[in-house]
Design a protein around this nucleic acid. Structure first.
Lengths: 210, 210
DNA sequence: AACTCCATCCCCCAAATGGGGGAGGGGCGC
DNA sequence: GCGCCCCTCCCCCATTTGGGGGATGGAGTT
């Protein structure tokens, strides 16, 4: 079980050779399949063979790595896929992660860090290049509402209750207020946030636009 | 500019000593401030001094690292904060990241990896322990709705329109249907997804619970 | 043929919602 | 003192929403 089965999908012959050659030398790593395209990979994959980790290039001709990801995860649900690419744009990163990638390494990653990244991923972790990680974290922050500042303390509380999906009546209970009071606050929140009602409010919140 | 100013906030005396001692020895790293609490850190911080990176423990007595994060980012907007902790629960990770942490390292991280992580962060990247990274990535995936499968094609369309915040009438227009038809589909969607109305639906969608 | 699911549309009704309005009291700043 | 904002509560009214019922026709299964 110490032997980690690894598959490599990479179109550039030189890179492919470098990668497979280097990784083959690593103790505990077992390169079981090397393909030059996602189509080839899926076709060549023997039924019995299930790599623990797949190193997947994104800039593939034909079926792109991004499009191949769901197919690979379907064929090998328990395998972890590390996406390797020179692209570091938020869209591609987001796509790769939402399609089940367990790692996202830039091609600029030193070869020497690959074995560790592969072991981390196989061990239930994830490996992200620093630049990529920063992009990912950026998706978590944007909370600071420029609007929220305009909301009075009470309105802020009411706002949060609305986000929680409460009805006016329930908000009144939670905050110990009269129904009519809550209705007043709610209307004020709508005005200050420039929304027409709780549905628009929630649908924007769902998109992180608030 | 090659010298990286580093501040350390850590309550455990032994760990504090180990960290500061080890990091002080690293070439290019300059430990400029070591505090045993967030309060001390904010108080001791000279006005002219702006560390590039702050190593922040989360399990602090008094003001927790999590609560201190926003204050630190306020005082030092350009500084990158690396959170260091033994906690790996999703809540704390999420909180730390949404409050502006640029890195999240577990206490189990080998000392030897710290300098690299610090340099990566200072260089505009982010550093996450593998386990943490996996947790973070999990937040990106969950799209595949187990429910969605149960929705008929029309219902799926209606569902998406609801997420977009449309009213019944607007859904009818978008899909070229009669209002009553839409109302029927909407009700069916509610039943199949076990929600009581669009507010619960949207508020769950906002939390990624759908 | 009988059954089930889907899509389309219709009706009724009670509750919740949004958009207006107003009013009294408290606090803060000028 | 006067104005302004916040908090509290009240009323009216048109629309929307949820929940319940039912009807028709088509497609697919058994």
């Amino acid at each position: 079980m110490n032997s980690l089965n690894l598959a490599i999908v990479e179109d550039d012959p030189e890179v492919r050779w470098l990668l497979s050659d280097y990784l083959r030398r690593q103790p505990g790593l077992n390169v079981v399949l090397v393909s030059e395209s996602a189509e080839d990979f899926l076709a060549e994959l023997p039924d019995g063979l299930s790599p623990h980790v797949v190193l997947l290039d994104i800039g593939l001709p034909g079926l792109s790595g991004l499009d191949a990801l769901p197919l690979i995860k379907q064929r090998l649900p328990q395998a972890d896929v590390i996406v390797q690419t020179m692209f570091e744009d938020a869209d591609r990163i987001y796509l790769a992660l939402s399609r089940g990638a367990s790692g996202y390494l830039l091609k600029s990653t030193p070869l020497g860090q690959l074995p560790q990244a592969i072991r981390e991923v196989a061990g239930g972790g994830s490996s992200l290049s620093p630049v990529v990680a920063r992009r990912v974290l950026a998706h978590f922050k944007p909370s600071p509402q420029p609007h929220a500042a305009a909301l009075s303390p009470r309105e802020q509380q009411v706002f949060e209750a609305l986000i929680d999906g409460l009805a006016d009546k329930e908000v009144a209970q939670r905050l110990g207020l009269g129904l009519e009071t809550v209705r007043t606050h709610v209307k004020n929140v709508y005005h200050k946030l420039h929304v027409s009602g709780r549905i628009e409010l929630l649908s924007r919140a769902a998109r992180g636009q608030l």
